[in-house]
Design a protein around this nucleic acid. Sequence first.
DNA 1: GGCGGCAATATTGAGTGCAAAACAATTGGG
DNA 2: CCCAATTGTTTTGCACTCAATATTGCCGCC
Lengths: 240, 240
Amino acid sequence: MPRTMKIAEPPLPSDPSQEDRAQAIRDSLRDAIVDRRLAPGTKLSEAEVGTLFDVSRTVVRAALQMLAFEGLVRVERNRGAFVSDPTPEEALQVFASRRLIEPGVIAAAIERATAKDIAAFRRHLEEETRHKHERGAQARRAEIKASGDFHLMLAAVAGNAILQKFMDELVARSSLVIALYGRSGASSCGHNDHADLLDAVEARDVARAQALMLRHIDHIEADLDLRASSSLTLRDALSL
Amino acid sequence: MPRTMKIAEPPLPSDPSQEDRAQAIRDSLRDAIVDRRLAPGTKLSEAEVGTLFDVSRTVVRAALQMLAFEGLVRVERNRGAFVSDPTPEEALQVFASRRLIEPGVIAAAIERATAKDIAAFRRHLEEETRHKHERGAQARRAEIKASGDFHLMLAAVAGNAILQKFMDELVARSSLVIALYGRSGASSCGHNDHADLLDAVEARDVARAQALMLRHIDHIEADLDLRASSSLTLRDALSL
DNA sequence: GGCGGCAATATTGAGTGCAAAACAATTGGG
DNA sequence: CCCAATTGTTTTGCACTCAATATTGCCGCC
């Protein structure tokens, strides 16, 4: 065995942009889905996506498979991939999961948050409220995205990569659910939940933060109309 | 719109075994990893696995990608797939996540468990203890598998598909962690935690069940030796 | 006239080949 | 004698291709 193992050169990622096109496509599609630019149910043809990103179907397949694992697309054998449209039951499960996990996440975040983190949260919150006061579909999308990002920031600060991955999935799925079943379209209509949450985090008041988090999730869920959506009722009616 | 929509024939899955070989390979590999027949760090060459299952690399790649999403294998670009060997930090995160999620799971399970479910649990428990009293590596593997399955059964009864998926991942990762850092090798050495848990479930005592669950996870974690493993320190030392 | 079957089309599933990257061994230089 | 560079080998990344399956449009028949 060699005694010294000097690495002549840092092998140097030949090109940072070359770091996996499948992942780039996944991120792009994911943003589009979470931003609701791709409606639930939309078919994602391999060839179409492939020409769009100028890659072969092989790479597209990998990206779609990833999204399927996150529950954002549904792949049906020999039929293709579709932006998933969660059933009301799945919607309930998404929020039940969030109720279970997010109180723990915020507790961990409170334990680990630095002053710098708090400052970052404050900055994020400002941007969030800024979007809220703007008009237009574009600003609305940005607001929804920012709203989800707040929860993802909490998960990041909590410092548990596994929980962070779970939260990634749950927040993304929430976006889909809100897209399908949301009444007002905005999850935080009228409420200032995030600001209150941040106050509790800054005060390191775990119990209060957890209670606020649960209420916040209640608020989001209360904005949903989980009676079977129009398209679903249509389908169900036809298939019966 | 057609008045009658008779379905001439149940389209009949041309062959149930044909229902996705990638998934079959994934399950097979997953069992092998969870059962510790594949040691952490083992390289899973696409060609090798392909010849082993008699499929092309394409299918193997899909299976490996799935396992990567569950955190059971780690794929390094241009280097291949390896059975992942979690760091001590990841190990801690796995158990932190379980502590967060499983009390909720068992609460939901208690709410939904039928008499039939309880009976299934009892049957499972018998088998578990049977394995425990047997000797040999084979029985030991079966015991560990059954121990994880108990938690998965709880998640199934809880009736939340998303949480169930999370638990799938967490239990699988726990097996890896125990394989790497376990002292006694068996997670439930000396304790009868599962039996106690089941009693609490049958009594519908949520608080008690949750407390027992947390203690159970403590027991599992207490059996770990999370000081850096030998192989890892060696590798780290060499690469520095 | 509408329903059922049939053929044409499109799309996915999967195997193979080629290029590039990483790994291993060997040889030349200090 | 040991280190470093180079070459040869192996393995992955990705595109192309063919086969299999679902979908769509069409025609005959009841």
